[in-house]
Amino acid sequence: MAETVELGVALLAHLEDGELSLKEAIDRVETVTTDPAVTRRILDTAEMRGVIEREDGVIRPQRGQFVSFEADVVSREGEFSCRRCGTTITTGYFMVFDAGEHGPFGSSCIRKVTGRE
């Protein structure tokens, strides 16, 4: 579970959104885990570390460590299911963080998860 929490915190640290609703933040975290207790631990840990600020149901990322699609995302060919939407994809995009690799995502979902869309 500790690895899952670290991966979720890394994801929140790399969001490009200026702010998100709690629902939108949970939608992103659910690409890491769907366990509500782990989701809460990810959000609490991210807040304690100063990665996010939470107030009145609004999440504000604080780090500004955006995902570089050239350096932090790798693509692989194969048969995958997108971690966000579940669609079958043949090109999977994976974010590479110090805490681990997160994916696969389809081309539009990778942009949605990182906050580029």
Rank of each mutant, 00 (worst) to 15 (best):
V9I: 11
F105N: 03
S75E: 15
E101L: 10
S107Y: 10
T88I: 11
C109T: 02
E53R: 15
T39W: 01
R60P: 00
E16W: 12
D17H: 13
T33C: 02
R28S: 00
T34K: 15
P36I: 05
A46Q: 03
P61S: 05
Q62F: 00
Q65G: 05
R63I: 01
V96M: 05
V67H: 05
S21Q: 05
T90A: 11
G8Y: 08
T90N: 14
R116P: 07
E19M: 13
I89W: 08
I26K: 14
F105Q: 04
L15V: 10
F69A: 01
C109V: 03
E24L: 10
A99Q: 02
A46M: 04
S107I: 09
V74T: 12
V58S: 06
R76L: 13
S68M: 01
Y93G: 03
R40S: 14
K23L: 11
E117M: 12
M48W: 10
G115W: 01
E6Q: 12
R40Q: 12
G57C: 08
L11N: 05
L22S: 11
T33W: 08
T31R: 11
R40V: 11
R84D: 11
T4W: 02
G57V: 04
I89V: 15
T31W: 06
T39H: 07
E101I: 15
G50S: 10
Q65C: 08
M48Q: 14
R60K: 15
R28V: 00
R49G: 06
A71F: 12
V38D: 05
T45L: 02
S81D: 13
D17N: 15
E55W: 11
V113P: 04
E19T: 09
V113T: 06
R60Y: 07
T45H: 00
F66L: 12
E53P: 02
L7H: 03
S107T: 10
D35Q: 04
G78A: 09
R49P: 01
C82T: 01
G100E: 06
V29T: 04
E79V: 13
C82M: 10
V9S: 00
T88S: 15
A2Q: 15
D72P: 07
M95E: 00
P61W: 04
T31C: 13
L12N: 04
Q65I: 02
I110H: 03
V51G: 09
C82F: 06
T114A: 13
S108A: 12
Q65V: 04
H14Q: 01
R84I: 00
T4Y: 09
